[in-house]
């Protein structure tokens, strides 16, 4: 497949446990994510897939009762090291959410926001360049070229989601986390985002949480199935969807659960 197992993993998770108060939400998860692969996390609601995703950019820090243990590294750097600047981490690890959430700003400023706060552009020309390239890579430039001053919220749902993807890639992250990025989109907008994911893989590593198993099958190279906080099975997507090894995976993907 696309990844080369001999290379060190981009993200390496070892014995990750997450507690929300008394609730043991994620149990002893070991998972490697390789550069330039799309990894899909699937499983029923409450299985821990989003919790795992949110560990990678320390979104769980926002939850007071959350406690994360285990070792999680990005290119060998401990993500939970006390010395890590979370803002810097989130520049390396971008995120796209379920519902498109453009800032109440112009299309241009939505994309320019990240590069500005991270001081990535020395002058306006450089900023323009970053914004245009990001919109282009997100497959949105042709549709918005003449209306960059209009509010981001004036776009259609599918365009807004691609704007959010442009915003995420504007700060040149290494890893993009996507939490159900298509669940609010119609099938055509979904297909465009899926095509985009396929293209982005060339430059980024992507972890996507999806409720749609079909989407996982279509977009990912590897699939991880979570159930009740445990990582039940992870493998090449083709293997998971043609010959799953675990009876729980088989039950879930064929719709014979419980």
């Amino acid at each position: 497949m696309s990844h080369s197992p001999s290379l060190p993993a981009k993200v390496r998770a070892r014995d990750i446990n997450v507690h929300y108060g008394d609730k043991h939400a994620l149990k002893h998860v070991d998972l490697d994510i390789h550069a330039h692969e799309v990894v899909a996390l699937i499983g029923p609601s409450g299985c821990g897939k989003s919790t795992f995703l949110r560990c990678i950019n320390r979104m769980n820090d926002q939850v007071d009762s959350a406690r994360v243990t285990g070792l999680l590294t990005l290119d060998g750097d401990d993500i939970y090291d006390r010395a890590v600047d979370v803002v810097q981490l989130r520049a390396r690890v971008g995120m796209v959410f379920q519902k498109p959430n453009p800032f109440p700003k112009s299309i241009f400023d939505n994309v320019a926001y990240g590069p500005r706060i991270h001081g990535m552009a020395r002058d306006q020309a450089e900023l323009d360049e970053i914004v245009m390239t990001s919109l282009e890579r997100a497959g949105l430039l042709a549709e918005v070229r003449d209306r960059l001053d209009e509010p981001g919220t004036s776009l259609s749902g599918g365009q807004q989601q691609r704007l959010c993807i442009a915003r995420a890639i504007a700060v040149s992250p290494e890893l993009i986390l996507m939490d159900e990025p298509c669940s609010a989109l119609d099938p055509i907008a979904t297909a465009r985002v899926e095509e985009l994911i396929d293209e982005l893989r060339e430059n980024f590593t992507i972890v996507i949480v999806t409720h749609s198993m079909q989407q996982a099958a279509r977009v990912s190279q590897r699939t991880a199935f979570f159930h009740l906080g445990e990582l039940v099975e992870v493998g090449d997507t083709e293997q998971i969807f043609t010959n799953p090894q675990h009876p729980l995976t088989q039950g879930y993907i064929t719709g014979r659960f419980g």
Binding site: A217, R218, E238, T242
Partner: peptide, 9 residues
Amino acid sequence: TVRLLALRQ
């Protein structure tokens, strides 16, 4: 073909 049936629906 099995791969396409499984992954592309």
